[in-house]
Write a protein that binds this DNA or RNA. Structure first.
Lengths: 236, 236
DNA sequence: ATTTACTACTTGTATATACAAGTGCAAATT
DNA sequence: AATTTGCACTTGTATATACAAGTAGTAAAT
């Protein structure tokens, strides 16, 4: 009786969906906070909490005295920030292909993030995926999940589904936040092959730690990104 | 009688300072929300607003039933998110050197961000700086400010001072948020020279738009970053 | 001795309310 | 006609309060 989604979160999801579906178009004003109160039967602080989430993620921009203006979606691929319930990696025209299926193995030595004793002992579930935006390979990512209480995970298919969704629906795990490091590297042979680029092609690497609602449970991914055509976007 | 800093912001600044100064060390618990209420003569929503800012920026992590745990500072150079009042680019061991002093010129064609009519007509204040972390050149950044109501700006010295501070103190301009794009590129000749790297060295480029409290006033910077030794870090 | 239950704390969510401050438009004044 | 004033709206900030839910230690029961 704990993990039920709070009302401000429900409202956030609803408004976000409406914006993405075009019910509210860029430049439009969202209903005022008081209207949203009345329509959704909640109070203004609750509405404001929902709107703040939307504003932080760039869906709307609030202007005192005017209202909440719906923003036009960023031109690139959003990945720098993500919502707690959905992967923020694009949405349309995104295909995912599992290159290496989930399997259990020990953690790599000198892992990109520090691990707890429990994590290290449990080993990790490892898999690799390639993600296409408009049929162009843009992301190549390697995921590492601690092998702790994730029954039947290795037999799941990961094609065209969000890891975030699987974790939420089947394991009640939600991402609450995380940490990321970004650097530029040269494409090594493996990357060259996946992206079809030449040697020395500059590639962006993201190392991410995803922290979840399950205490002490984090998972990790290393994402290689070809920013030649699609760059990463984010707000702060 | 508008731009006075709100109380939650004051509390945020105070706690942030204390954390940075080591009054509260990583792993410590911050005083509980109720204690902070009593000490600072504010109510819990106000305290929570301040703590949320700290949590978003990774200074603390809140744990229900326990308290607010102070986090250890990230290992890299924080730039992916920034606070409204201080530049988030490092803090210690950071030197800045102006390579091209501020001068007025027309905006470049095909600018990295869309400009309003007013901005384009006014021209821009342009300057270049090189930033050193521990005496190693890490950032090379080009700044573009709309030439609108910024008296005597071009005669200011920009060595070892934060642009954010200058704008805040002399022009009452505060950064409220912004947008950024990230991509990986090869070092061109200019970059090679500044960073002392070879041809084809991968470099990270950030294009940033900073939105301010002055309506319609944004400024821009293009930051080249050598992530060989220092990577960019951020939370989400 | 081990387990259980309780208690006193913590943060999370939600309501209700009030006033300040910015925006835009219409009405009143000049 | 042009300017100013005022009003009705918006979001921003702040207070006061209540209960839910997670944590950790202690006391009680087995």
């Amino acid at each position: 009786m704990c993990a039920q989604t709070p009302r401000y979160r429900e409202l956030y999801e609803k408004l976000r969906k409406h914006i993405l579906e075009g019910v509210y178009k860029p430049g439009d004003l969202l209903p005022s906070e008081n209207e949203l109160c009345a329509v959704n039967q909640v109070t203004r602080p609750t509405v404001r909490q929902a709107l703040n989430l939307l504003a932080n993620e760039g869906y709307i921009k609030k202007r005192q005295g005017l209202g909440s203006v719906v923003q036009s979606p960023p031109r690139g691929v959003g990945i720098l920030s993500l919502s707690g319930t959905t992967s923020a990696i694009g949405s349309d025209n995104l295909k995912t292909e599992a290159i290496v299926k989930p399997n259990v193995r020990p953690w790599p030595p000198n892992f990109i993030f520090e691990l707890t004793e429990v994590e290290r002992e449990s080993g990790c579930i490892y898999f690799e995926r390639l993600r296409f935006v408009n049929d162009i390979p843009i992301f190549y990512d390697i995921s590492y999940l601690p092998n702790i209480n994730l029954p039947r995970f290795t037999s799941r298919s990961l094609n065209n589904v969000s890891l975030f969704d699987i974790l939420r629906e089947h394991y009640q795990i939600q991402v609450k936040g995380g940490e990321q490091n970004i650097l530029a590297i040269k494409a090594d042979e493996r990357i060259q092959e996946h992206f079809g680029v030449k040697k020395n092609h500059p590639i962006l690497r993201l190392d991410r730690k995803m922290e979840t609602n399950r205490e002490g449970f984090s998972f990790y991914s290393q994402i290689y990104c070809n920013t030649e055509d699609y760059r990463l976007t984010g707000r702060f």
